[in-house]
Nucleic acid binder design. Sequence first.
DNA 1: TAAAAGATCCCCT
DNA 2: GGGGATCTTTTAT
Length: 221
Amino acid sequence: MVGPPALPSSWTRLSPDFCRRDAREVAPELLGWIFCADSGSPEGRSGLPRGRSGLPRGRSGLPRGRIVEVEAYVQDGDAASHSHNGPTPRNGVMFGEPGRLYVYFTYGMHWCANVVCGEQGSGEAVLIRAVRPLAGLQSIRERRPRARRDRDLTNGPAKFCQAFEVDGDANGSDLCGTGPFSLWSDGARPERIDVSPRIGISRAVELPWRWFDPDDENVSR
DNA sequence: TAAAAGATCCCCT
DNA sequence: GGGGATCTTTTAT
């Protein structure tokens, strides 16, 4: 039994300090980072973690994707944010340590994932809206049977979670430590970054807190 | 206790 | 471009 390929040592791992800033500052900087469906830790490699589908997250099926679209959500003055009215059972992770994964369930069937940002207690996060698959394409396709074209595999926040099997079990997990998912940078940055209002919200619709790579076909719009 | 809305996706026209 | 699916969370009564 052979584990997945070791993550290149030149990569930089996400740190709590990187996230301990205003989500609107962190969000555009997360474009180009690589979301990995394992912790990158020795335990994560040898453990071959499996999701609910039973498909292995490790070995050659290990999905990895480069973030190409994000949105920032903060507490103050952001009526569209889950954290806007203070902590609740659902959004508690948003008020916790930066560098954690905030996963929520919506529309009765979809999961969405955020990177917690800001100081503890600030209630900020960056929604991962889309990634470009880099590895594990076969397992991604298996988890996204409804996608007709490859560009539909991960070009939306819930599609991304489906493809990487991010669900409520991962809520609060540590992206910087031994959690089931991790974030890394190989130094690559998008050539261009565009900004626009956020998508799919009905309040605070004017705030320009969505950032994306306009040259990537995996952005949701 | 009830009701409404929701950081979406998919299929149909 | 429009509407249905589907159910949890939150807010209002």
